[in-house]
Amino acid sequence: MMTRAGGRLLTVTGIDRPARDIVALHLADPAGGPLPEWEPGAHIDVQLITRHLRQYSLCGSPDDRTGYRIAVLRERLSRGASAYVHSYLDVGKKVRVWEPRNHFGLRPAERYVFLAAGVGITPILPMVMRAREAGVPWRLAYSVRTLEEAAFRDELAELGEAVTLRATGTGGRLDLGGFVGDLREGTGVYCCGSPGFVEAAEKAVAGWPEGSFHAERFVPVPRDFGPSEPFVAVCARSDVRVRVDAGVGLLAALRREGVRVAGGCLKGVCGSCAVTVLDGVPQHRDSLLGPGTLDRMHACVSRAATPEIVLDV
């Protein structure tokens, strides 16, 4: 069982059900103090009393410093956390929460196209609100299987015609290519949903300018990195050299030697286990960083492209 340092206990101050199979949790400081700031697209690590640690997008308003809102889907094959939240979390209970992080920030653009599917609406909703406040043109396509699964419908209904809500069970799939249109220059496309949905959206913007498309994923991008080579992680702060064998991950190898590194999803999608690279070249195998990033890496799945890599751990 992983215990992780830091974080703060927040109280569940409200629970509501924005859609069938989704609960929204309102979290606040027990003493009523302000919570750390965040920007649309941010997520928090949430640890339940069962010690399950999960990442949830913040879906409230960044202007509200008194509370966070997250939404949790009831998963048919829950690995524990979703089932626990739906069955046992109550108003007044506490969860441990770490500072918001953001790998899915909204960058300036002349216009925005937002694409969300299912519970993927959560990071998108604050983006929509931000675009609206800023007066930047935007439109949102929100795909759900049935209308009962559409979350935050009241909030979305107030946004008018810029929202296209599609129940694919009755209305068929969205034509994402048609929805994103062909005004490529200056359009930022932000997408969150199932792997199939994100893949379809990626296809719809094939050939668009670099940096147009931004996606938040719940599962890793499937890629083949070839065989894993052993390497040595030199831990500058702990003053140990850790051999990472071909069949072992960096995070696991570090922990074996007693080097403490935070862990999160362990799949390379959440970014909890970022470590600073001081020397050597990381081979990014996560779904967040590309070969251009040399100063940090995600220890859960990424490895070294050089025989040695020096880490600030």
């Binding site: 094959l77 690995r79 524990g80 362990l266």
Partner: peptide, 11 residues
Amino acid sequence: GDLRTMLEQDD
């Protein structure tokens, strides 16, 4: 497979 998926822990 489904039951084992529900028992996944630490990946």
